[in-house]
């Protein structure tokens, strides 16, 4: 494949990687985040107490290494930023004309977001508020049903799936609870 003229590949890396328009946009966004982050780290490290009152050596001040790491990150992020800008990564809101790819991408994003949502509700919302066993069983049952439920089919024809999901959820949660509580003596949340 010939790369279009005017593509900047920067000092490091391969052409193929940096010519992907989606990756260039992603690089632009991450570089902006990283620049902001590293500047914050540098500022915080600079303003960190140097503990002169304790009479410690200024070279062993707690902010020395974080400041240095912040500077390194800033330099690397600037290289990434300049490279992505030169390749048009700043046009973050321009859509690619690939309907099939978009649909596929949306499906994948939906599944990821659904997994994330259910898992966060379980680990952040329910854990510690509801009993561990019921909470875990409920999570497993919900997870399996959400991903195995077929929207085109009537509910009653999928009763087997619900039954198996319930059995797995109850048995697996019981096993985890017993193993961690009685064998590893963990005080469950």
């Amino acid at each position: 494949m010939d790369w279009p003229s005017g593509t900047h590949t920067g000092c490091f890396g391969t052409n193929a990687h940096m010519n992907d328009p989606k990756m260039v946009k992603k690089d632009f966004i991450t570089s902006v985040v990283l620049i902001t982050f590293s500047l914050t780290v540098i500022t915080m490290s600079y303003t960190m107490p140097r503990l002169e009152r304790r009479g410690i050596d200024p070279f062993s001040a707690p902010g020395v290494v974080p400041g240095m790491i912040g500077l390194i990150l800033l330099c690397l992020a600037l290289v990434l930023f300049s490279r992505s800008v030169r390749n048009g990564g700043y046009r973050v809101f321009r859509r690619e004309a690939d309907a099939n790819g978009q649909r596929l991408h949306q499906g994948a994003a939906f599944r990821v977001l659904l997994t994330l949502f259910v898992s966060l509700v379980y680990a952040v919302g329910c854990l510690g508020r509801i009993g561990y066993y019921s909470c875990t069983a409920l999570y497993m049952f919900t997870f399996i049903c959400l991903f195995e439920f077929q929207t085109g089919k009537p509910l009653w024809s999928q009763k087997k799936m619900f039954l198996y999901a319930a059995i797995q959820a109850l048995v697996a949660s019981l096993l985890i609870t017993v193993v961690f509580q009685n064998l590893f003596l963990v005080d469950l949340p």
Partner: peptide
């Protein structure tokens, strides 16, 4: 079926 089990193990 496998992933919720793995996640429950990751949490605990």
């Amino acid at each position: 079926k496998l992933m919720p089990l793995i996640f429950a193990l990751c949490v605990i």
